[in-house]
Amino acid sequence: MIRFLLLFLLIQGVLFGAQLTPWGQEYFVIPWTTALATICQKIVTLFDANVVAVGKILRSTSNGFAVSIEAGCNGVEATIVLLAAILAFPAPWKYKLIGFLAGIVAVQGLNIVRVISLFYLGQWNMKFFEWAHLYVWQALIMLDVLIVWLVWIRRVPRADESADANTPPNPPAGAISAV
């Protein structure tokens, strides 16, 4: 448990620091956030044509309301937490990769719901927007990370299961005692 927690915190700290660097921002965070805004805009235009995405900003052309997807709302931190939790947990690399890819879909899927819901919540009531933005969605996204991680662990074979699969079964006790 201690090994896991230390590894988890270490990986998280390193990845978080890396994405804060100018290089991390330029080549990862900004393209990621821009793509997120574009995806949100594409989804929203399915039922509301008056929305445009400019960089990381999602804006309503009908009333001028806009949200800027900043750090904390682009799902990068949640993804880092999930990646750190998956990497720190003892599991075969194949399962880690599958877990991470599926986790990105789950976390970013919910994050798209977050951005779109906040976009419309802000047009309706700023007080509710602030609450949902600062507290509720932050908690829900991390809850999503926890659930994804738990589901992933459940699908990872146990250490002894994978060991059993790779080693031939023990011969009967009698056979061993005769040696």
Partner: peptide, 9 residues
């Protein structure tokens, strides 16, 4: 259904 965070079997 596992011994959580067990590093070695």
């Amino acid at each position: 259904r596992r011994d959580l965070l067990r590093t070695k079997s």
